[in-house]
């Protein structure tokens, strides 16, 4: 651990911004959480109260919560779905050896998927911020156009980055397409950048200084891992092995999908995607090759999405059971 990082880890914590105010906004539960884990607990509680199934992270390396089958597959087809979960997300290229206060190669997303998208979804989302103790009247909240696209998943949607005082704290997307398939009904995907939000709530400028639990900071728990993984991503990974793995995982994914093993097959799609990200971070992929590799993963994702739709249809869309077909709702403005 560098001296700088060690010093940072021991610096005094700032007092939570606006913690002592009395006139918190509607739906607020008063003071902001003091630790990262409390922040998570608040989100879990909020979305549990909204009727979401609280799930756990996926067990394979992914770049975002979207890769979790709880999003990638569940947004497909007519079945309704409401879920929320934390996703440790790996972006090998984004690491800075823990030296940049805001950039990590592994960060946590809090992912909420609501299908069909409720009419008051943005109001509910703002309530979740109040629930985190953010007094919206003392901040600038903005929905800034951001059309999201995952070229590897063949997924795209329209929506916004949500800015809290110009910091992107959430990506909000109305999914339009996944695995190349047009979607109906439409899912609203809410992806909170939890570190960013926690920094804000705790009044610290560096992720490394986040109070994770009452007596441990982010640096105590993860700084060494961050430095080491950056070393791996940028310097020590073995491109020859990774290229080999990419080929093998790709073959395995096709084999499994062909045999009707939808979820196991998809696991290998996800592995392929991660291996690609590692190669990319290592600078081992040329420009044209890069485009070609992304197209290969996208083709896999499409195959997986198609296999899933076929499977669910054959099962008679089980989650539709006991549900009236969703009708377009009407409100009087």
């Amino acid at each position: 651990m560098s001296a700088k990082a060690a010093a940072g880890a021991k610096s005094p914590r700032a007092v939570a911004a606006g913690a002592a105010r009395s006139n918190a906004g509607v739906g607020s539960i008063g003071e902001p959480p003091r630790t990262f884990q409390e922040t998570l607990l608040r989100l879990e509680q909020f979305w549990s109260d909204q009727g979401c199934a609280l799930l756990q992270p996926y067990s394979s390396e992914v770049g975002a919560g979207t890769f979790n089958p709880a999003t990638f597959f569940r947004v497909l087809g007519p079945e309704p779905w409401k879920a929320a979960y934390v996703e440790p997300s790996r972006r090998p290229k984004d690491g800075r050896y823990g030296e940049n206060p805001n950039r990590l190669q592994l960060f946590y997303q809090y992912q909420v998927v609501l299908k069909p998208s409720p009419e008051d979804v943005l109001e509910v989302y703002l309530d979740s911020l109040r629930h985190l103790g953010i007094d919206l009247e003392r901040h600038d909240v903005r929905f800034v156009e951001d059309d999201w696209e995952s070229p590897t998943l063949g997924a795209s949607g329209l929506g916004w980055e949500v800015w809290l005082d110009n910091q992107e704290i959430t990506q909000f997307t109305y999914f339009q397409q996944t695995g190349g398939y047009e979607l109906e009904p439409i899912t609203a995907e809410i992806t909170y950048g939890i570190e960013r939000i926690a920094c804000y709530l705790q009044g610290v400028d560096r992720i490394m200084d986040l109070q994770w639990s009452r007596d441990r900071t982010w640096a105590d728990l993860f700084l060494q891992a961050e430095v080491e993984w950056c070393g791996f991503n940028f310097e020590h990974s073995d491109p020859t092995l990774l290229f080999e793995l990419f080929e093998k995982f790709e073959r395995e994914a096709y084999r499994l999908l062909k045999e009707g093993m939808v979820l196991p097959g998809y696991d290998y799609v996800v592995k392929c995607s991660h291996v690609f990200n590692l190669l990319d971070a290592r600078g081992a992929i040329g420009v044209t090759e890069r485009v070609a590799s992304i197209a290969r993963v996208r083709k896999l994702a499409r195959a997986a999405a198609g296999a899933y739709l076929k499977q669910r249809e054959a099962m008679g869309w089980p989650l539709l059971a006991g549900q009236a077909a969703p009708e377009p709702s009407t409100t009087r403005g």
């Binding site: 206060p101 950039r103 600038d140 909240v141 005082d165 110009n166 910091q167 992107e168 920094c199 400028d205």
Partner: peptide, 27 residues
């Protein structure tokens, strides 16, 4: 920076806008 709103919170907003700019300049 131009915020959307009025009233209290100038200090909070300034802090946030400075942090995000610093990250970009640091990049």
């Amino acid at each position: 920076m131009i915020r959307s709103g009025r009233g209290p919170g100038v200090e909070e907003i300034r802090r946030g806008t400075q942090i995000v700019l610093r990250a970009r300049l640091e990049d």
